[in-house]
């Protein structure tokens, strides 16, 4: 059969069978480090969904920088659900695209964040520069690897964690600004995303300490076998909350609301929580958290809402053009 005839037949087949026997599909648009998590979770959810007496579903996942993913959805990517790195990016789905209501974050428990993470330090085996806490990062000769907060969601959590520590330590915003200015002076490379920084630190062996998502740090450790790297938990960090949301406009068009809501709700079930914990995300469910307590170092955590007034205030103050991050570079 010629290719053209084959294509025509396939097209005709799709037209005829498409609407009738279409298994429901669900598109989950997520950020970079959740790739492995959602591969596992999608399989588990499909089992659960079928156990409820539904047809099996095809779940597609898309990963990339959190901001880029949000823009793709705003610009027309038909995501049923978004699971992004920070609430600020999902807020834009409302502000720019009117795809979801403004109060989206109140629709699911725990501010729509089924799992959390935090920011930790990844250092070379044996911790040769003796890095224990945030003040060690600005010691002479220490090179810090972190992505650019202008282009990376993870990097914004890094920046805010450093800021929160410095403000508690030194007691004022000016001192905190001096601290982060010094910190970023010791950053030799600003990659555009968290994975880029991990490559720079782990593969290209640049720098003494990588500021990383806890889950990303554990993953790097797992992949290289624990011979070259170790994790250091600072005295204080930030509760990184990557939230999830159903994209109302898209599920209404596609008729997938029930499925999409079940998909996100199941993240809060014990099974969902356990999968998240296995992939080094901190579960919200107390009993699952207790099961995995060994895995996660205990540390003091500030939150974006209590300590920074939410992303609506933090984003323009720190990261938009002319914000604190720009100021510390312009002051040079």
């Amino acid at each position: 059969m010629s290719i053209r005839r084959f294509a025509l037949a396939a097209l005709a087949g799709a037209l005829i069978s498409g609407p009738v026997a279409a298994a429901q599909t669900l598109l989950n648009v997520s950020y970079d480090p959740t790739r492995e998590l959602y591969v596992d979770y999608n399989a588990a959810f499909n089992k659960h969904w079928q156990a409820q007496g539904h047809e099996p579903v095809t779940i597609q996942q898309s990963h990339g920088g959190s901001g880029k993913q949000a823009r793709a959805v705003i610009d027309g990517l038909r995501a049923d659900v978004v699971t992004l790195a920070l609430a600020g990016d999902i807020d834009e789905l409302h502000r720019m695209g009117k795809l979801i209501p403004e109060d989206w974050q109140t629709r699911l428990p725990d501010a729509s964040t089924p799992y959390t993470s935090t920011i930790v330090f990844l250092v070379r085996k044996g911790n040769p520069k003796d890095i224990k806490d945030w003040d060690d990062l600005v010691k002479p000769g220490v090179e810090v690897i972190t992505p650019n907060p202008k282009t990376s969601g993870g990097a914004r959590w890094n920046f805010l964690a450093a800021w929160a520590w410095a403000q508690q330590q030194y007691g004022s915003e000016e001192k905190a600004k001096e601290y982060v200015a010094q910190l970023y002076k010791q950053v030799p490379v600003l990659d555009t995303g968290a994975r880029g920084s991990t490559i720079t630190f782990v593969n290209n062996k640049i720098g003494d300490v990588l500021l990383a998502w806890e889950n990303e740090a554990f993953l790097a450790l797992k992949e290289e076998g624990g011979d070259e790297l170790e994790i250091v938990a600072p005295s204080l960090s930030i509760l990184a909350e990557p939230p999830v949301a159903v994209v109302d406009r898209n599920v209404e068009r596609k008729g997938t609301r029930e499925l999409a809501e079940a998909y996100l709700n199941y993240l809060y079930s014990e099974e969902g929580q356990r999968i998240a914990a296995k992939h080094f995300y901190r579960p919200r469910n107390q009993s699952v958290a207790a099961e995995f307590a060994q895995q996660f170092p205990e540390l003091k955590l500030v939150t974006i809402d209590d300590d920074f007034g939410g992303w609506k205030q933090a984003q323009p103050k720190f990261f938009n053009d002319g914000g604190v991050f720009d100021q510390i570079y312009e002051a040079r």
Binding site: R71, E92, N148, K150, P188, V189, L190, T192, G196
Partner: peptide, 25 residues
């Protein structure tokens, strides 16, 4: 972007600045 280091004012290329603007919507 991988080889530049992307330091503001020093090794930032114009297309990166476009991406930076886009990431602020």
């Amino acid at each position: 972007i991988f080889i530049a280091g992307n330091m503001p004012g020093k090794t930032e290329i114009l297309p990166l600045l476009i991406m930076v603007k886009l990431d602020q919507y």
